[in-house]
Simulated assay, not measured.
Amino acid sequence: MIMSSRSTIMAVAFGCAFVVQPANAQSLDVPVMEYASDDLDTCALGEVFGLKSDGDGFLAVRSGPGSDFAKLDEIHNGDRVWLFEQRGDWIGILYGANEVSCSPIKKDRIVPYPGKKGWVHQKWIAVIAG
């Protein structure tokens, strides 16, 4: 955690402790996992498609694999996302990330790459690579 020296001094001076979270922090109820595989890539690249302009116009990104989970964000037709795991009709995604490696890994892990993570319904995602 990085705090400005002024914030650090104020916290020390008043004997308080606090945690600073980024304004865009997301809270997932179900983390998006990257699963180990001997020779297979761990993710694929996808794109949002098929959203009707006369409908909501967005795909809800949720905190877990289901419409019962909180909506975290909205993505739109043409937005690209990295696809990691699938649970039923729901796909765990990463988006807004610059660099992602889909190379095989040796041990399962929570998706470690910076960017936004969440869950979307597969109906609106087309796999374009992977």
Rank of each mutant, 00 (worst) to 15 (best):
I2T: 12
I2H: 15
M3V: 15
M3G: 07
S4V: 00
R6G: 09
T8V: 11
M10D: 12
M10Y: 06
G15I: 00
C16L: 11
C16A: 08
A17F: 08
F18Y: 14
F18D: 13
P22V: 11
N24P: 05
Q26W: 05
Q26S: 07
V30I: 15
V32D: 01
E34V: 09
Y35L: 13
Y35K: 15
A36Q: 13
S37I: 06
D38F: 12
D39P: 03
D39L: 10
T42I: 10
C43D: 03
C43Q: 04
A44E: 10
A44I: 01
A44K: 12
V48C: 00
D54T: 06
D56R: 13
D56C: 11
L59Y: 02
P65D: 05
P65W: 01
S67K: 15
F69K: 04
L72C: 14
D73I: 00
E74I: 00
H76R: 06
G78Q: 09
G78E: 01
R87S: 10
G88P: 06
G88R: 02
D89Q: 13
L94G: 00
G96N: 11
E99A: 15
S101K: 12
S103R: 08
S103H: 03
P104R: 09
I105G: 06
K106T: 13
K106E: 09
K106P: 03
K107L: 06
R109I: 03
R109A: 05
K116C: 14
G118Q: 14
W119R: 06
V120K: 01
V120P: 00
H121Y: 11
K123V: 04
K123C: 05
K123D: 05
K123M: 07
A126L: 11
I128V: 14
A129Y: 11
A129P: 06
